[in-house]
Simulated assay, not measured.
Amino acid sequence: MPERLVAAIRGALHDEAGWEFPHPSDREPMERTLRAAGVERYCALPYAHKPAIARELNEWVLARSAESEMVVPFATVHGDDPVEEVVREAFEAGARGLKFQCPVQRLAPDDPRLDPAYELAAEYDRSVLFHGGTAPMFEASPYVGVERFEAFVDSYPDVRACCAHMGTFQHEQFLDVLAENEHVYLDTCFAMSSAVGESMAFDPSEIPDSAFVEHADRIMYGSDYPNIPHSYESEREHLLGRDLPGETYRDLFHDTAERFLGER
């Protein structure tokens, strides 16, 4: 995202949670770190915290993404925008999906203002990623929670949808939703880091190995890098230390992301 927006996000998280961010946010140094870790592609996930900025933000992300073979660009929209226009423009320009940071945008997954966006996601075969869980500091937010996410899934069962951060702090309920819906995904961002306990009250061992093995085709690695207050290595350290089957790791770190993007 644009440096000014990244700085604002990091500043808000610092003020709210005291987090520090040691990683560069410029694309070139960020990509050097990712390539050194063996990453082939990563998703750019913008979100619009207020109306009337999504169109410009999407254009910026798509233009910058065109400069790199590594970037899979997503787009965003705010509920008070002309939703259909903004989303159609972004999809036509090459956006591979939509990102919603529900508590910050004050948009629940089942907000009816977003219906045109979901209808276009179905029409264009695009994916949707939500911060739809209550972690790390949104337990009181009315815009998140498994009920709001499940209501969206019930209305749009054929749209590929991911809840970030394993659905924490409602991970058990989100795993149930995943088990019952073939187009629901979860990602491991932040929640499965070996350092997560330094930043929020969650122990990744609460999620058993069996969950990853049973649902390997719909749980995928994510890191939130570079907007994390811990090392990038810690995002995968705990997962690699679980001694999961090789085919589970192949799904977790590669194949499931392709399924989510509609490439398999």
Rank of each mutant, 00 (worst) to 15 (best):
L13R: 14
S127E: 05
E84M: 01
P245N: 07
A48K: 04
P22N: 09
H23R: 08
T76L: 07
D217Q: 12
A140Q: 15
F100A: 10
A257Y: 03
E123Q: 15
L261K: 09
L129A: 12
M30F: 06
P116M: 11
R242Y: 00
Y232I: 04
M137K: 15
F91I: 11
P142K: 08
V72I: 15
R41F: 08
A75N: 13
M220W: 11
H215P: 02
A164N: 02
F260Y: 13
A191L: 07
R35N: 00
Y42D: 00
Y185K: 08
F212W: 03
P24S: 12
A8W: 11
E237I: 09
P29T: 10
D224M: 02
C189L: 05
A8C: 08
H230I: 01
C162E: 09
E172T: 14
M192P: 06
E20P: 03
L34V: 00
R27D: 10
E84I: 03
P82D: 14
A140K: 15
Q170F: 00
A151W: 05
E263Y: 13
M30N: 09
L34Q: 00
R32T: 15
T76V: 12
E237R: 15
T168R: 05
Y47N: 04
E119R: 13
L186Q: 03
D26Y: 05
P109F: 03
P51N: 12
M1S: 09
H230K: 04
L178H: 01
F212C: 05
H49L: 14
A121Y: 03
H215K: 04
A117L: 04
S68Y: 04
D176Q: 12
L114H: 00
T256G: 06
D81W: 08
E123M: 11
D224R: 02
F149H: 02
G197W: 08
P136M: 04
E92A: 15
R64L: 12
H238N: 13
A75F: 11
R35Y: 01
G262D: 05
V87A: 09
I219F: 02
L175F: 04
D80Y: 10
A164Q: 06
V128N: 03
E119Y: 01
E31G: 03
T188F: 06
V71Y: 02
F130M: 08
A37F: 09
T33L: 07
E85V: 13
E198N: 14
